[in-house]
Design a protein around this nucleic acid. Structure first.
Length: 564
RNA sequence: GGCUCUAUCGUCUAAUGGUUAGGACACGGCCUUUUCAAGGCUGUAAUCGGGGUUCAACUCCCCGUAGAGUCACCA
């Protein structure tokens, strides 16, 4: 390790080359050759190149979708590129077949990737391959050159030795890790390394950090702002014993080669940012801008915690599809979390596609670990569904039911016109539509009673729903109704007749009269309506009765009225 | 535990040293009304605590407290 003698330096360089060659006998490429294949992107000024880079370890996490949505909007609004890169360098945690879930989810939410492998398995883009396991030659080439330059070194510690070291560090109360004098193989002579290699010991490659933990460096995060963090002094692993790189190394190389300008990722990465910046510097590359977003959290008892893959079904994006939330609802809810001015924008632009909303990093910066709020999601969703036409709702519900409730799917598919008529009740584009459907799984319980197949009401049940009402009165009321009913009546005409029926049967015509002199009446007109409501629907709370009567049709109405 | 980040109504947040601290969701009331929704009007509700700096602090600084993240041959 002499720096004084130039001959020694020359000798060291030779030795390192020798070591690198022995480490990677099959690597024949050079960094320069690789760089040539990844020319700078030709994009307009200010265009952002962003990516979503998940590891295929199971289902897609809602936080991943959130980061993807933000990244995609930023890229496309700046006429840039958004791409998907699969980071499958952890073979132990990889879940077979889960990588396809990612493009599937993105496509489902209409988050368009410009490059990467889509759900059909077709890869597009000139900066690939977009799956890290297909890029091992690239990583090894760079790692090899790092070893040649003396910026990385092989390490032959066994896991047991590392465990032992860690224990000692914990006992001594010092920082754990592979750094300074703890970095045993960093100080070994070339001869010792060569010998270990000779013996065929398995190795990993570590980055040789020249950082000092006591040194604070200023880092610039596009979301959090300028912060001070300690310099990295850990000789982190960059190449594992299975020949695959670690995340740190792989993402540095990929983001550089693929021309990424902005990395939007979870803030669990913030503490390793000094390391990443250091790696970029040592590679001689300009780092992208980093933005760390806080995780979406939920309340558990009285404390907040990150949405957990294991405990929380809502952490899985598939959950929202199962529940039947329209994609737009999930997207708009997330846009609202990302930029709180989204709501105002939506209010002033009710008909615009949410893609037109200008998402900004500035507004995103203030989002600090929001709590997932189902009530709010439901509200957003209700507003969106209220704007759908009956036929759109029908189509969406049917699609959903075919996947998650086949029985219900059959029911409404057998009665398309009837179902649409039902769904059209109190639905209009005047902004005053019913807002009682938040998700497709709500629809069944809302409209079930319309269908004879799922409607069974006995006389006794009717009477328990109408306590204190005389059976003869009910009969008489129904009788007057059937006699005066006219299919062509308007809502006003129809209700005038109900009032008339109330009057002739000793009920108050309107609530005001009834409230003035309750003792003079058997009840009021609301009670009359209630009788029909119960007989027709089996419940005491329903949408507008006139609409129900007309949606059901004369035959069904008569049949239901005849139960008594 | 070390290091780091964060802190405004119950929730999501607005207010880049000067506002009666604003909005949305939720909750309550009233109006409308054949029930329920929807709609209109309206109300309750917040700057974590303590010190500074300043004429003036939600805003800047320090110390607490709380929450979160991270400390792997995982990403």
């Amino acid at each position: 390790m002499s720096h004084e003698n130039p001959n020694n330096n020359m000798e060291n360089m030779e030795n390192r080359k020798n070591i690198a060659e022995k480490l990677f006998p099959n690597v024949t490429l050079t960094p320069e050759e690789i760089e040539k294949k990844y020319p700078p992107r030709e994009l307009p000024e200010g265009a952002m190149v962003t990516r979503i880079a998940p590891s295929p370890t199971g289902f897609m996490h809602i936080g991943g979708l959130y980061a993807a949505l933000i990244s995609e909007r930023l890229a496309h609004q700046s006429k840039g590129v958004f791409y998907l890169r699969i980071e499958d360098t952890d073979k132990k945690r990889e879940v077979e077949g889960s990588s396809v879930l990612i493009p599937k989810s993105l496509e489902h939410y209409d988050i368009k990737i410009d490059e990467g492998e889509n759900s059909a398995g077709v890869e597009s883009g000139q900066y690939g391959p977009y799956k890290q396991s297909d890029r091992v030659e690239i990583y090894k080439t760079y790692v090899k050159s790092l070893v040649e330059k003396g910026l990385a070194y092989p390490c032959f510690d066994t896991p047991e030795e590392l465990e032992e070291m860690r224990k000692i560090q914990e006992e001594q109360g010092v920082r754990t890790g592979y750094y300074k004098h703890w970095a045993k193989w960093r100080g070994k002579t070339d001869q010792e390394v060569l010998q270990a290699l000779e013996e065929g010991k398995p190795f990993i490659v570590r980055f040789k950090s020249e950082g000092d933990f006591e040194n604070k460096i200023k880092i610039e995060d596009v979301l959090i702002g300028e912060k001070e963090l300690s310099e990295n002094d850990q000789d982190i692993v960059i190449l594992k014993s299975d020949d695959l790189p670690t995340y740190h190394m792989a993402h540095i190389i990929d983001d550089h080669l693929m021309g990424t300008t902005h990395v939007i990722r979870g803030n669990e990465w913030l503490s390793s940012l000094p390391l990443h910046l250091q790696l970029f510097e040592k590679m001689g590359w300009i780092p992208p801008k980093y933005g760390h977003i806080f995780p979406i959290q939920k309340m558990e008892g009285s404390s907040k915690r990150k949405l957990s893959k294991r405990k929380d079904p809502e952490a899985n994006v598939a959950f929202y599809d199962e529940q039947g939330y329209p994609e737009d609802a999930v997207v708009e809810y997330m846009l609202n979390l990302a930029n709180s001015n989204f709501e105002d924008w939506r209010k002033t632009n009710p008909d615009k596609d949410n893609n037109e909303f200008p998402l900004t990093l500035e507004k995103l910066a203030s989002s600090n670990g929001p709590l997932f709020d189902f009530v709010k999601l439901n509200d957003v969703s209700k507003e969106i569904i209220a704007r759908y036409s009956a036929s759109e709702v029908y189509k969406r519900v049917l699609d959903w039911a075919k996947k998650y409730d086949q029985g219900f799917a059959n029911l409404i598919e057998d009665n398309p016109e009837y179902t649409e008529r039902i769904l059209n009740i109190e639905r209009g584009n005047d902004g005053k539509a019913r807002k009682d459907i938040a998700k497709w799984s709500d629809v069944k319980k809302e409209i079930e009673f319309f269908f004879d197949q799922s409607f069974l009401l006995t006389r006794d049940e009717v009477l328990t729903l109408l306590p204190g009402t005389n059976v003869d009165d009910i009969k008489s009321i129904i009788d007057s109704y059937t006699k005066t009913y006219n299919e062509g009546d308007t809502k006003e005409e129809w209700f005038a007749k109900i009032k008339e029926i109330a009057k002739t049967n000793g009920y108050a015509e309107n609530t005001k009269d009834y409230k003035k002199n309750p003792e003079k009446f058997k009840g009021n007109v609301a009670d009359i309506a209630k009788i029909f409501r119960v007989l027709l629907t089996g419940r005491v709370q329903t949408p507008d009765l006139y609409s129900i009567v007309h949606a059901m049709g004369i035959e069904r109405v008569s049949k239901r009225l005849s139960v008594i």
